[in-house]
């Protein structure tokens, strides 16, 4: 099943986030956007104060329609922070969520190179270019749907485990509470009164 996709015209939108002063305090996002607008395949490039905020997301969604974008690149923070956010945004605008790519120009650029603004700017441009390059070859993907066994397991019968098990069970979920000692209770059961209200612990 080697893929031989039809060559579609690439229409990439690039968004450079200021993140308040977190990014914009070190590098000029507008300059990166202007620079990126000349990269092959890019039809729209702009900076935005907070890409993750409602206004930022709306901008992306509107642009997808307005410019007929088929790829989106967000140069902002770590994928561990906001990948889900932007995937959600593009899919609300009708684009497959896997056609969005992020460049991390905050944690891995401006925050780490505050001492070297020139170097940080060059790196932000390169990271954006790399994301644009990857975006060229992104393919739409569908999430894999798996069934869910409607049963929970809680490992450890201390105060945290008991709280979790009771709340799961109260939601109507069958719950197995596993404890390695012969009794549940954990450290809590060994305590006398507890602060700050001096209740009994058991």
């Amino acid at each position: 099943m080697s893929d031989s996709p039809k060559k579609e015209e690439l229409r990439i939108g690039v968004y450079i986030c200021h993140c308040g002063s977190n990014i914009a305090g070190v590098i000029p996002p507008a300059e990166v956007a202007e620079w990126a607008s000349h990269l092959p395949g890019v039809v729209r490039a702009t900076d935005t104060l907070y890409a993750c905020a409602d206004s930022g997301q709306s901008l992306i969604k509107e642009d997808i329609k307005k410019y007929n974008l088929n790829r989106v690149v967000v140069s902002a923070c770590s994928v561990r922070m906001h990948e889900t956010t932007f995937r959600g945004a593009v899919s609300e605008a009708g684009l497959n969520p896997f056609l969005m790519e992020m460049a991390n120009i905050r944690e891995q650029c401006t925050w780490a190179h505050g001492h070297d603004k020139e170097g940080a700017l060059q790196k932000a441009k390169d990271l954006t270019a790399a994301a644009v390059a990857k975006a060229q070859f992104l393919a739409p993907l569908e999430f894999i749907t798996v069934p869910v066994t409607k049963k929970a397991m809680v490992i450890g019968g201390g105060v945290a485990g008991i709280s979790a098990a009771l709340d799961l069970a109260d939601q109507g979920i069958e719950t197995i509470l596993v404890e390695k000692e012969p009794t549940i209770g954990g450290v809590m059961a060994q305590l006398n009164k507890t602060f700050p209200t001096m209740d009994c612990s058991i």
């Binding site: 999430f143 749907t145 009771l166 939601q171």
Partner: peptide, 21 residues
């Protein structure tokens, strides 16, 4: 503990769950 119950409930109340392809 209560937060975990809520996070796990998100999954356990769904009939299906989506995982990244």
């Amino acid at each position: 503990g209560l937060a975990c119950a809520s996070r796990a409930g998100r999954i356990l109340h769904s009939d299906e769950w989506q995982i990244e392809p």
